[in-house]
Structures are given as structure tokens and as C-alpha cells.
């Protein structure tokens, strides 16, 4: 993850030609969507499988921090909303696993990669949810940051990924708004509610900035994937959009953003202070945060679901045997 980009590195595989690459890049240049059966460079396929499957893992692990609060939701309305949101995240994982499958990845291999740590997922989901206000703050900031990234990816050149993103974004907007509504309400509520909202912001602000990825100078995979129309903006551009939208709204809600260096520059961009990347990498590697617990929970869910897969397989076998008679 930390290797620098090698600009001289060729992305043309031994059995591919420069002409094939030129024709492929011309299609992207014309704004065409690449579909599953179309010719594509092996490197485009490989990078997309990596990106889409890690994105899927993030959605699936992303159910855990908030899922813990379903039983403790303060009202039936909030509980209904939270259940719908967590169900949506499961659905997002499904869209994305399906999109990766169109590239030849198998579900079994992707799940195995998650459970054996061959694949990563977003570091944000390794932070604990300490109070009920964390549920609202995650909706406002974490789903808010995810929307910025996913809106960019909705324009990606790979058709199935782009379609999944458009569907996901319309659902994420509900996640974002329900969180914002909750926090704005608490920030204008009783002293205890205000304190809970501020405490949640103190803990989630920096992880939300980090989840949009390393600074552009330290981001090795951006080059070729932006040339191939997948990553249409850099991490820093997306992060700037996120802060520009959220900083004024948090301030309006009466909250204090935990960054003494935060300020607006001449053209109106909100500039943040230095980000603690050591923390980011430690959380990604599982040295800090709840990485172990999250994966253990996923592993248990996978094992507990084995009988469903076996039953479906037995039913399929039975149908085939009947059909063969």
C-alpha cells in the first residue's frame, strides 16, 4: 500500500497489445461504459476486483458498529430507521459482490479474503460505538463521506460498478439525512443531549476525514485508475468536498469541530489541520481498534450461515436429480 507509483511501469500484459489498449482507452475517452463481456486490460479487471470487493467488505463490516445499537434504540421510530439502514448496508454489500462477480471473482474467494485478512475494508468500522449519538454521527459523517466517494464512483467507466453506485447513493442519502436530523435535534436539545452529540463529533470527525484515504502524494493506485475512468477525483479532492459541505453545517448545528487549525481559505475551501496517519495505518492493520472483534463477528456469522448454504445446495441437487429422471 505504501509503494510509490512507478510511472514507467507498463500496464500492458504479455498477451495484450498496445492497439487493444489504445482502443480501450479511446472508448473510455468517449465516455462509454465498459460491460462485463467487453475486452478490458487484465490490470483494469484486477484493480476493479480489488476495489469493488474491498468496497463490498466495508459495507458488510459496516453493519456491525451500528447493528450493536438496534436493541437499545430509544424509540420505535429510531429503531425502525436504524434497522432499515443496517439492512441497506447488507444490500450494498450484495450489489458490490455481484458487481465484482461480473469480473470473474467468486463469492467464496472474496469472503475468504476478508476473513483471512488478504483483503482490507474501511478503517472507520474498527472504531467503537460508545453512545447512541454515535449512530447519528455515523450517519451524518461516515455515510456523508461515503456518499462523496460513491457519487464520484457512480461516474466510473465500468458499467456494473457505476450502476451499483447510483443505486447505493440514493439509499445512502437516506442514511446521511436521518443521521443529520438526529444530531441537529440533539445539538439543540437538553444539556445532556448536546454533550452526547459533541462527544460523538469529537471521536468521529478525524476518522471520517481519514476514511477518504491517504493524501494524493501517498496514494499508489490512483494513477492508472484515473486514466481508465474509475477514480475520477483524487482522495484530497473528495475530502475537500466533504469538509466544505459538512464543516458549515456542523457549526450551524452549534457543535465545535475538534480541529483548532480548521479555517476557510480565500476561495472558501475549509482547510483542516494535520491528520494522524499513524493512527489510520494502525487501525487498518488491526493493531488498534476493533479489527479482531469485527472479523471474529463476521467469521461467526459466516459459520452460523453454513446450514443455509448447505440447504440451498441440497435443494438444488434434488431439483437436478428430479429433472434428470
Amino acid at each position: 500500500m505504501t509503494q510509490p507509483v512507478n510511472p514507467a511501469k507498463s500496464h500492458i500484459a504479455p498477451d495484450e497489445t498496445a492497439e487493444q489498449h489504445a482502443a480501450f482507452e479511446a472508448r473510455i475517452e468517449r465516455g462509454e461504459k465498459i460491460e462485463a463481456g467487453d475486452w478490458m486490460p487484465a490490470e483494469y479487471r484486477r484493480q476493479l476486483i480489488r476495489m469493488i470487493s474491498q468496497h463490498a467488505h466495508s459495507e458488510v463490516v459496516g453493519m456491525l458498529p451500528e447493528g450493536e445499537w438496534i436493541a437499545s434504540a430509544p424509540t420505535l421510530k429510531r429503531k425502525t430507521i436504524l434497522m432499515a439502514k443496517v439492512q441497506d448496508e447488507a444490500g450494498h454489500g450484495q450489489y458490490l459482490y455481484h458487481a465484482a462477480e461480473t469480473l470473474g471473482a467468486t463469492r467464496e474467494d472474496m469472503i475468504d479474503a476478508l476473513l483471512t485478512r488478504r483483503a482490507k475494508y474501511s478503517s472507520i468500522f474498527n472504531y467503537p460505538t460508545m453512545t447512541w449519538a454515535d449512530v447519528g454521527m455515523i450517519g451524518w459523517l461516515v455515510d456523508g463521506a461515503a456518499i462523496k466517494n460513491q457519487t464520484m464512483l457512480a461516474g466510473a467507466s465500468y458499467g456494473p460498478y457505476s450502476r451499483a453506485m447510483v443505486r447505493i447513493c440514493s439509499e445512502e442519502t437516506f442514511h446521511h439525512k436521518q443521521g443529520k436530523e438526529m444530531i441537529v435535534l440533539y445539538a439543540q436539545g437538553s444539556a445532556a443531549q448536546r454533550e452526547m452529540a459533541q462527544d460523538a463529533l469529537n471521536r468521529w470527525w478525524w476518522p471520517a476525514l481519514m476514511m477518504l484515504g491517504p493524501h494524493d502524494a501517498d496514494s499508489p493506485n490512483t494513477g492508472i485508475m484515473s486514466k481508465w475512468g474509475v477514480k475520477l477525483k483524487t482522495n484530497d479532492e473528495v475530502r475537500q468536498e466533504f469538509i466544505n459541505e459538512h464543516a458549515p453545517e456542523l457549526l450551524e448545528a452549534g457543535l465545535t469541530i475538534p480541529d483548532p487549525d480548521l479555517h476557510q481559505d480565500e476561495i472558501g475551501n475549509w482547510k483542516h489541520g494535520p491528520i494522524n496517519w499513524d493512527e489510520f495505518w494502525a487501525v487498518i492493520k488491526g493493531e488498534r481498534g476493533l479489527g479482531q472483534e469485527r472479523l471474529a463477528t463476521r467469521q461467526a456469522a459466516h459459520d452460523d450461515g453454513a446450514w443455509v448454504r448447505e440447504a440451498l445446495q441440497a435443494y438444488t441437487n434434488r431439483q437436478r436429480a428430479v429433472a434428470a429422471d
Binding site: 432499515a84 441497506d88 440514493s170 437516506f174 439525512k177 443529520k180 436530523e181 441537529v184
Partner: peptide, 10 residues
């Protein structure tokens, strides 16, 4: 309707 973003006018 609570699953629709339009439900939350903030």
C-alpha cells in the same frame, strides 16, 4: 416512507 431521503427535510 422513512426509508426515503425526502422524509428528512434538513
Amino acid at each position: 416512507t422513512y426509508k426515503q431521503q425526502q422524509y428528512y427535510g434538513v
